[in-house]
Design a protein around this nucleic acid. Structure first.
Lengths: 153, 153
DNA sequence: CCATCTGGTTGCAACATGCTACCCCTCCGA
DNA sequence: TCGGAGGGGTAGCATGTTGCAACCAGATGG
């Protein structure tokens, strides 16, 4: 694991997020966790991932504070992996990926799973990036303010 | 490249999105593209990635329709990599990752780069997942409606 | 026309992934 | 109380991917 701390000192929040969840499986594990998976075997069957890889990913996500190991959940003495508040805050990320995939990765008539409002079974509203005053903004309306880069080299 | 089409037939949009952009570098390349990088060397210096990896990633992103190669941009006969509309639609994904990283991956007093509204230099509003009626919803308020899985086996 | 910069490609070493086999623990019925 | 089944992993090995450095080709430029 040489890449563990690769962007730990990068002042860009995107880089640090990618550092935490930016590999192939982590995001899918988190998606399954949002979807209700809690046990090792559930993740394994849902993802079809090798057990050692899943084991390593779950451990990394626990270390990252995204998942927590609960000693037991449904009576049986096995352990469950549940999202921490930090993990739950990834909800917009997963929703954004989902909406992008829905829009761009499916044929118009191709069926796909959907994320629905539990209250009325209707799909969610599209995520919108808003300015402080509520005005919707696109990439061109924003500017990245870089940190002044302390004593770096 | 055995993983290229790994989730191509997966009916979950999140999986397909991860298939397209879910590796270490792609998202950072896209972030840099939003930030104004266009040329090979710009990406390379900004990311510190090996040139062959960058080359492969850029090619994959172009194949995925996220970036496009423009024959020239600033006069000199070199080529530029620019976001397509499909790539620009990743803006909420990048913003979501950025906001999550800002909240969870920095010490309270630690400086980091910021994404500001160009109009008034103020930070953006937090992304919110909204139901069709505008009510904000969290993970527990939603349910994934799985596709009935056609003739699969 | 030689030196240099940009934009790559190629080869090789190191690392990560995936698969299979195995292991330990708990649960459960006989 | 024993044996089997299933959950939750680890170990070993083949393969694929990443990273680094070297190299290369076309523009620039003196």
């Amino acid at each position: 694991m040489v890449k563990r701390t690769r962007f730990d000192d990068n002042p860009c929040p995107v880089a640090r997020s990618v550092d935490a969840i930016g590999d192939w499986w982590s995001l899918l594990i988190i998606r399954d966790a949002f979807d209700g998976s809690r046990r090792f075997g559930e993740f394994q069957r849902s993802l079809g991932v090798a057990k050692n890889i899943l084991s390593a990913r779950l451990r990394a996500l626990v270390e990252a504070g995204i998942l927590a190991v609960e000693p037991a959940s449904d009576g049986s003495a096995y352990q469950a992996y549940v999202l921490t508040p930090k993990g739950e805050d990834l909800f917009p990320v997963v929703v954004a990926l989902r909406q992008w995939g829905e829009r761009h990765s499916f044929e118009p008539d191709e069926p796909h799973s959907e994320l629905l409002d539990r209250r009325d079974d209707r799909p969610l509203r599209e995520l919108a990036v808003l300015a402080a005053d509520g005005r919707p903004v696109g990439p061109a309306d924003t500017v990245v303010h870089k940190v002044p880069e302390p004593e770096r080299a």
